[in-house]
Nucleic acid binder design. Structure first.
Lengths: 221, 221
DNA sequence: ATAATTTTTTAGATTTGTCTAAAAATAATT
DNA sequence: AATTATTTTTAGACAAATCTAAAAAATTAT
């Protein structure tokens, strides 16, 4: 009864899931870019995933996961986010250095392991990046979060997630002393370049670029 | 600076290490049997490991790990035993059901992960089967343990390790209520079949076969 | 609507880890 | 010592995941 897909297949499934969120479909080129493989390689895998009934796919058309594929994706995401939580909460990793390691741990498939880990961690609902952790049935909590660019001036809010796990982003955030849970408010918006001036309690105001603001998601308080 | 061997290579290295203990050398057939692959397949891998300077090997001769190979083996064994400890102590796995899962986790190579896990667990010296855990330099504690077959009559002793992790063995031990740490003594030895009668405090005497006695290692108290 | 461009797929090759069958080397027997 | 048996290696093939180069389909532009 254990899933039994290769790590490679799992990586494709996960990538398709993320690209098709919330309800769209995905193209060969998008997936090829995300996984850093050539389009020809992607095509081969699409045929394999279709044969395993995980994917709705017809040649030259856009594609999306089947319900079974989506279920598999959620179990992989569950494993990934539980391990991230473990690494930060128990092993004292920085929240910006867990992604690569979790990327490996997520492919250990034992359901018993994952469920016991979940229990050991106290059934956490969100990972250290603020992303929801699916439970053993694939259900996730939804956070009402908005992009920092949509936060009104002077409205207190708390950072709940970041738009990607790119190292460059995480490095910049740590440099600016911004992390999940940081409470902040916007003091000023600059129309010229879209940059905004943030105020975090006890810290000097910082100016962040529009790109960075777009990668931050907050919950108004 | 991360090792960077494939899981398959790591499995060969580990198997060679165990077969060559304490100082002997290994044959193609032995390794083939241990890994359930054909001798021809083993030969291919031996050439690859030799090319990577992990193995002393000449065609048609017995072989053994080079010092570098041994170092790699010890890091794999370290990972395996730390994860076994984690699974039993933190996730409440039975000590007889952790082997397969640890077999997967051991291939996650991040040194930082392993060292932080080690610290989280309190730098344990022995895994749940009583086997010593190498430290981050590859050093292991040695236990002065003897085989149960060598334990004198009426000498109290404590089980410290088992000869293999075969499921059949672990099942039998759990049926007989014998585990690592169990204190026992031998009440009688039967010359006819080598079986022995054991007494564990608060339990009725049990008779165990010679095969089983050979798989149990104890520390006289 | 036809031509040009982009996207996607097909075809053929490569690497890793495996296999079977046959050949070569070593070990055991008579 | 010569023959037989066993062990090990070589040779050739296959599946998985990747690549490059070329062909086919779809999209965009003129």
């Amino acid at each position: 009864m254990q899933s039994n897909f290769t790590s490679t297949e799992e990586n494709y499934i996960k990538a398709i899931y993320h690209l098709q969120q919330p309800d769209g479909s995905v193209t060969t080129n998008e997936l090829s870019a995300k996984l850093h493989t050539r389009p020809a390689t992607v095509t081969d895998m699409l045929k394999k995933l279709k044969a395993k009934k995980l994917l709705h796919y017809e040649p030259y058309k856009v594609f999306q996961l089947s319900p079974e594929g989506k279920k598999v994706a959620l179990t992989i995401i569950r494993r990934h986010r539980l391990w991230e939580f473990f690494l930060v909460e128990k092993l004292a990793f920085g929240w910006d250095e867990v992604h690569e390691v979790a990327e490996e741990l997520e492919h250990v498939g034992s359901k018993k392991l994952v469920d016991k880990l979940d229990a050991f961690l106290g059934f956490p609902k969100f990972d250290p990046h603020g992303d929801p952790i699916p439970d053993s049935n694939g259900k996730m909590s939804i956070i009402q979060q908005i992009c920092l660019t949509e936060l009104p001036l002077h409205k207190p809010a708390q950072v709940v997630s970041v738009g990607s796990q790119a190292n460059e982003l995480l490095e910049l955030l740590s440099h600016k002393s911004i992390a999940i849970g940081t409470k902040l408010e916007i003091k000023k918006k600059f129309a010229f370049d879209g940059s905004v001036e943030l105020k975090v309690k006890n810290l000097a105001p910082v100016n962040i670029s529009e790109q960075l603001a777009k990668a931050l998601f907050v919950k108004p308080l």
